[in-house]
Write a protein that binds this DNA or RNA. Structure first.
Lengths: 377, 377
DNA sequence: GACACTAAGTTCACCGAGTGAACAAATCAA
DNA sequence: TTGATTTGTTCACTCGGTGAACTTAGTGTC
């Protein structure tokens, strides 16, 4: 079994990339003697491997890195139909991808997963033997054990122990997680924010998701509801939202809302880029829609910065067109609504992602549990 | 010296109150054998003492509690004039209180503190010998070492290493902290939220402060700016704020703002209660002021709940009258602007505090560092 | 090419915080 | 009085860690 020190070491490598034994010792605050043993353990297990030599003065150092093929992880997104199902390795690389029919019935979902796993495993002869876990991303609230869906409006669930059900059907360790939180863990483990200890992810898909990483760990809040930025009230007495409130950010700035408003205006468009193009011709209605959406999202993010002062805001988006009016207004709105001292101090990073992001996030949840342990350390 | 385990033990006692050795062993996840040694160490040092016996089946258990007089802490608030200076014991009890002239010059402040300490120490023969540290609360941003004031508009400071200066003048370990964060630490260490691991404090004084405790620790954000809720934009294009923005919560819902608006309306009033009384007579202008302030604060808190999902919101207020229109509207605004599923799930606790709260908070910062160690564990 | 120099990584005796099991202590219940 | 029960201590032992000495594998200089 892996001790706490082994896991800490794996965490450091996942954050910093390949390191020499001496560098690892410094990073963990351990002696070279202790590191020597830890490294040997993990190399013997096949988790780490020697990856290159760095020459300098004195004896060259051997860099140790994760062995990507030591373990594989399946990830499924239940927020798309059909539901994508991917297989990735310990480096986060997607090595297989298939689709699965979406269902609202937990048993059916578990059965579908169990049935389709063999196909996913075909891509690598040892995938089945080395599977480290299954992760599932869904829209809704998940308990801190990442096992039970406390509530999901989209799936019409309440207290569904999906992880246990999938575990029973597949015999493989399974975890579930909220969609935005899964993306946050993905970015922390495999993405561009590996080395960041405090950041917030805002994910722009059809809806708006958000999740916080604090002190290097996912922060889920007391009821698993941290990051529900989509239902912050932006326009007092605004349009009714499906959540029952009025003027939620989701009704103004989500891709769904933007497209719906465009449809009402009679525009024939299916993507953000389409609307941006119409706005670029000077169309007042299109400009208004994008301007309103951009400033709403910017205001919400500005409030978030004021409240939490994260080290970075990573905005992941599945659509192109973030360089247009919407994105520009958003950035301006952030600037104008953040304390002048802070304006510009919090980097806003845009990151275009594919539709696989949720499935990859789901797999990351499994990888995180397997590699570093449950989030509660 | 105290080991990590000793400090963990002290943290548990500060969270749970007196416990038997066996209960502590369970709380720390240690064996009875290990606990036996740890407890003896701390009793020998004089930190813990046996406080009462609990009878049940079997051998009765002896409860161990902190020895309040093991150490004393000084706390100074630089957000009031004159600046209150208090001495408290390890139990958080205030045992002396004097005033100090407020200055903006760090050297003068340090000198004033050094000069007045002897008077503060008079109250207890061993106070001077057992002083564990000095804490200073101020309005502004503080670095994570709790040593340097990065920036303070009120004091017109930028990068002032006040803690070091005070340490030089007094020979006593000193720490500084932002006012709202000091209150949060006070409530965590000595207040009603000792046992809570995730909560947010909103402090209503002349201005509005806010700070988060996450996983039992103060969360200061990446630039020490977490909790700057006062400068969240509530009214787009609203009145200009001294921070340079417009429509900040501070311009609508702080006690200063409420009183200023009342003054403009020609009301002769100096407290929130005065305005509440005028509103109670049906005066439309007074009602409007309070309604607007209450809904603004409620909206800000609702956004905070959506973003962070804290386990509890503790609202500390130095004025009476929170049971009136302002408080009622605030609570309603929280309810209506929080996701229906969550409405009412996050307890909102009101806590009337004295003007000493900041000085007590300051002392708590010193106590926390002395007892549990720097926040970075 | 020999030799000093430097830094990486290993080995080994040792330390100390923790454990489990046995035991002493202090009470209640019959 | 005796037995049951639970608290708290003692003690031999384990195990993750350390510091210091050592081996290893390069570079730089003459």
């Amino acid at each position: 079994m892996l001790t706490t020190s082994h896991r800490q070491l794996l965490r450091v490598i996942s954050e910093s990339g390949p390191l020499s034994r001496t560098e690892m010792a410094v990073a963990l605050g351990l002696s070279k003697a202790a590191m020597s043993g830890l490294a040997r353990d993990l190399i013997d297990l096949g988790v780490l491997h020697e990856a290159g030599t760095v020459y300098g003065q004195g004896r060259p150092s051997t860099r140790l890195d994760l062995q990507p093929e030591w373990a594989f992880f399946a990830g499924i997104s239940l927020i798309q139909d059909p539901a994508p199902m991917i297989l990735c390795d310990l480096g986060g690389k997607v090595i297989a991808r298939i689709d699965m029919p979406l269902s609202r019935d937990p048993q059916t979902i578990a059965q579908s997963i169990a049935e389709r796993l063999p196909e996913l495993f075909k891509v690598h002869p040892q995938a089945a033997a080395k599977i480290g876990g299954i992760g599932i991303a869904l829209s809704g609230f998940v308990d801190e054990r990442q096992a039970t869906c406390i509530q999901s409006t989209l799936l019409n669930w309440q207290g569904v122990p999906l992880a246990d059900i999938v575990r029973e059907h597949t015999g493989i360790n399974a975890f579930i997680e909220n969609d935005a939180k899964a993306i946050a863990v993905h970015e922390k483990l495999f993405g561009s924010t590996r080395d960041q200890q405090n950041f917030t992810v805002v994910s722009l898909g059809d809806g708006i998701g958000c999740a916080h990483v604090i002190d290097g760990r996912l922060y889920r809040g007391n009821h698993g509801g941290a990051g529900e930025i989509a239902h912050c009230t932006i326009e007092l007495g605004g349009a009714p939202c499906r959540c029952g409130k009025r003027g939620c950010l989701d009704t103004i700035a989500s891709m769904n809302a933007i497209k719906e408003m465009a449809r009402v205006e009679g525009f024939a468009c299916t993507t953000l880029s389409d609307i941006e193009q119409i706005a670029a011709t000077g169309n007042a209605a299109a400009i208004k829609i994008l301007h309103r959406a951009g400033s709403a999202l910017g205001l919400a993010i500005a409030n978030l910065i004021q409240i939490n002062d994260p080290g970075l805001i990573l905005i992941t988006h599945t659509e192109d067109g973030l360089q247009g009016l919407f994105g520009t207004v958003m950035q301006q709105a952030i600037e104008t609504n953040v304390l002048p001292r802070y304006a510009g101090q919090t980097p806003i990073r845009l990151h275009r992602v594919s539709d696989d992001i949720w499935a990859r996030g789901a797999a990351s949840i499994a990888a995180h549990n397997f590699l570093i342990g449950p989030n509660t350390n």
